[in-house]
């Protein structure tokens, strides 16, 4: 049996090449893989295609998130449900680079983002959704009418890697998340070729997690690292 447990975050991201597509879990804090992002920043991979709910820096947080890679020009493209802050007066670090044309973006409804990721990890070639009908999001997309209602064809969104933050795991990689930490974790774990997980709690032995209580089966998990107790505040689960 392959050992999925890595000692350091640096080893876990060492092989990621320039140009890789990477999914980042997380929604407004919970689930954000801060330690993996910090490690990839140290590693130096460039031209990343980042797939994430936002391009990072939600609010005034000083915590590590995707904006670290964006600001250091490691990201070529972002696929997300936000390319601007929700309040027009607030600016994300991403915004300046995007408006200057130095970074590309694909903006989509959040449910469409989630379902495209789900489809990629579920062997589904495409799906129809009503989200975005009659808006700019529909531009260039097939519109099909089912039972009198229009829907847009949306295609799967796979990735080379997924960075996920979960709460507990056993040695086979069976994962549990805590509360709203779960968000994109389970669907990204299935949609990526290589799934790398940072964990709040030490690994338990297989058998210690009730099979009925597994959120992400270990078959979808390739690498795991436990967040060390002495992790700095920039990479801890806090805001």
């Amino acid at each position: 049996m392959r050992n999925k447990l890595f000692d350091t975050f640096d080893e876990a991201v060492a092989d990621i090449p320039d140009g890789a597509s990477i999914m980042f879990s997380g929604f407004a804090g919970p689930g954000t893989p801060r330690n993996l992002i910090a490690a990839l920043h140290r590693q130096g991979a460039k031209e990343i295609h980042a797939i994430s709910n936002t391009p990072g820096r939600w609010g005034d947080s000083s915590l590590v998130d995707l904006s670290l890679l964006v600001q250091s020009r490691r990201v070529a493209k972002v696929s997300a449900a936000f390319t601007a802050a929700t309040h027009p007066s607030a600016k994300l670090p991403f915004t300046e680079l995007y408006e200057a044309g130095e970074i590309d973006a694909e903006l989509m409804p959040q449910g469409t983002l989630a379902e495209r990721i789900r489809a990629a990890g579920a062997g589904i070639a495409g799906f129809y959704t009503a989200a975005g009908v009659g808006t700019e999001i529909a531009d260039g997309k097939e519109v099909r009418n089912f039972d009198g209602r229009d829907y847009l064809l949306e295609l799967p969104l796979p990735a080379d890697y997924a960075f996920i933050h979960a709460h507990t795991a056993d040695d086979l990689g069976n994962l549990q998340y805590r509360l709203t930490q779960r968000n994109f974790g389970p669907i990204m774990a299935r949609a990526a070729k290589v799934t790398i997980v940072e964990l709040d709690e030490p690994i338990v032995l297989s058998g210690d997690i009730d099979p009925d209580a597994v959120h992400t089966p270990g078959i979808f998990v390739d690498r795991m690292i436990v967040i060390p107790a002495d992790a700095t505040k920039e990479v801890k689960n806090q805001r």
Partner: peptide, 20 residues
């Protein structure tokens, strides 16, 4: 989701919610 003069926007879940 997008104001005049801005390139980006914040759709979030609004489009999914609004049609559903």
């Amino acid at each position: 989701w997008r104001v005049t003069g801005r390139k980006g926007g914040g759709i979030g879940g609004a489009m999914d919610l609004a049609v559903s």
